[in-house]
Amino acid sequence: MLFRPGLANVCFIGGRFDRNQLAKADTGRLGLNKASAKRRAEFMAGRRCAAEALYRLAGVHHMPAMGPKRAPVWPAGFTGSISHSDTHAAAVVARTRDYCALGVDIEPCLAHDRTSALIPALLTADEQTRLTGACLGEQVTLAFSLKESLYKALYPLTGTQFYFQDAQVVAASNGRARMRLLTSLNKHWPAGTEVTAKYCRHGDHLITLVAIAAERTGSGV
């Protein structure tokens, strides 16, 4: 999968997977022995991406198990994030000495006729005013995916749940985006904090990434 985040000491792995093959994988030891074939396939696709990213980054052989609240369990000294659609999976990994949190998301672009009903739930009033008629499905998918990546990165740091109306995309162009929190998550992440992100389109999918540096001073990548 063609996505080069351009971040030092970060490894991204992603691609298409064969659901029929991965559905046969032994996932009992990972806590999915009762899951559906579809769920097992998606889970294994994401974990295999994560395992490959860990190996390429540091030569570590480890497939993250599922921990509390279904979050992946990373080996000591590492952090990461995993995402999947029905057909694609992705993972990003870094050392905690470089990044304290990562968030990655991969989404198929919404069809134009499915977009209108979702806009009020996913986009703030300000975001809605900046929509254009062209590629509406891609615009809404990008905002949705960016907020998903933001949540994946910030929830482990703050322990505070937040929702689509609690952050907004301020700008997005040429693979870089800027988001702003509209609600305070804790004293380190107050309302008004801005976080940058990266994104790219791969076929009919969008990939977004938020990386919070270890020396974070209120921004991401």
Rank of each mutant, 00 (worst) to 15 (best):
residue 1 M to A: 13
residue 3 F to N: 05
residue 3 F to G: 01
residue 4 R to G: 02
residue 4 R to T: 14
residue 6 G to R: 10
residue 9 N to W: 01
residue 13 I to K: 09
residue 14 G to M: 04
residue 17 F to D: 04
residue 17 F to I: 02
residue 19 R to T: 12
residue 20 N to W: 01
residue 27 T to N: 11
residue 33 N to H: 13
residue 36 S to H: 10
residue 40 R to S: 05
residue 42 E to R: 03
residue 42 E to D: 06
residue 43 F to T: 13
residue 44 M to T: 14
residue 44 M to S: 03
residue 50 A to C: 10
residue 52 E to R: 10
residue 52 E to F: 00
residue 53 A to E: 08
residue 53 A to I: 07
residue 56 R to F: 04
residue 59 G to S: 11
residue 69 K to S: 13
residue 70 R to T: 03
residue 73 V to T: 12
residue 73 V to G: 06
residue 75 P to S: 07
residue 76 A to L: 09
residue 80 G to Y: 11
residue 81 S to P: 07
residue 85 S to N: 02
residue 86 D to Y: 01
residue 87 T to S: 15
residue 87 T to I: 01
residue 88 H to V: 12
residue 93 V to R: 00
residue 95 R to C: 10
residue 97 R to F: 00
residue 110 L to E: 05
residue 112 H to N: 11
residue 113 D to V: 08
residue 118 L to H: 08
residue 120 P to I: 09
residue 124 T to K: 01
residue 131 L to K: 12
residue 133 G to C: 05
residue 134 A to T: 14
residue 140 V to T: 10
residue 143 A to H: 14
residue 143 A to R: 15
residue 144 F to H: 06
residue 149 S to V: 13
residue 153 A to Y: 12
residue 157 L to R: 03
residue 159 G to F: 06
residue 160 T to D: 03
residue 161 Q to P: 00
residue 165 Q to G: 07
residue 173 S to K: 06
residue 176 R to L: 09
residue 177 A to H: 08
residue 181 L to H: 04
residue 181 L to M: 10
residue 183 T to K: 13
residue 183 T to E: 02
residue 188 H to S: 14
residue 188 H to T: 01
residue 193 T to D: 04
residue 193 T to Q: 14
residue 196 T to E: 15
residue 197 A to F: 03
residue 198 K to S: 09
residue 204 D to P: 01
residue 206 L to Q: 01
residue 208 T to L: 04
residue 210 V to G: 08
residue 211 A to I: 01
residue 212 I to R: 13
residue 214 A to I: 02
residue 215 E to P: 03
residue 216 R to S: 14
residue 219 S to P: 00
residue 220 G to L: 15
residue 221 V to W: 14
